[in-house]
């Protein structure tokens, strides 16, 4: 049987779909195309959707271009650049007046950085990819727009 590293050198193209968890109460999905330059280096284009319910309602979609460097047979580090669009919705109940509720909605677009650590195994043409920790950090925000809605209830 061939090792994952040997298969990366032979199979130039890969497509993977994944599901993950976002702390504290979120989840995400990712669709990735990869191009293997050689055993060590892979260039990836990934579309990602992340959503979280806590501490605020938040959803974001991003497209990332990444370089993934394999240190051995399966272990990798990845770094990339991304373009992200997101919406954050939050509700504040004022402590001094329980009938006042402030709702805010922020829409943003941002360029960001993306880092990841994980392992990818290949058996024949099958791929199993486990990214242990991924970080996406928006850095440069473009036209962030905030809408505040002040609601009187009761």
């Amino acid at each position: 049987a061939q090792t994952s590293a040997q298969l990366r050198a032979q199979q130039k193209h890969s497509i993977t779909a994944g599901l993950g968890f976002v702390p504290l109460a979120g989840a995400g999905g990712i669709l990735t195309y990869g191009f293997s330059v050689n055993q060590e280096l892979e260039i990836q284009l990934a579309a990602q959707l992340l959503a979280s319910a806590f501490p605020a309602s938040w959803i974001s979609g991003s497209v990332n271009l990444k370089a993934r460097y394999y240190l051995g047979n399966a272990f990798y580090l990845s770094a990339g650049l991304g373009m992200e669009k997101g919406t954050i919705k939050d509700t504040f109940i004022l402590p001094n007046n329980k009938v006042d509720v402030i709702k805010s909605e922020t829409q943003y677009s941002a360029f960001g950085l993306d880092f990841g650590v994980g392992q990818q195994w290949r058996w024949g043409s099958f791929i199993l990819d486990l990214e242990y920790v991924g970080v996406h950090s928006p850095l440069v925000f473009l036209n962030p727009r905030s809408v505040g809605v002040d609601k009187q209830t009761g």
């Binding site: 779909a17 599901l19 702390p23």
Partner: peptide, 14 residues
């Protein structure tokens, strides 16, 4: 900063 923990993906290579 958005973190994601344990992203499990499956797919194919060609």
């Amino acid at each position: 900063v958005e973190l994601r923990f344990v992203m499990l993906s499956v797919g194919g290579a060609f």
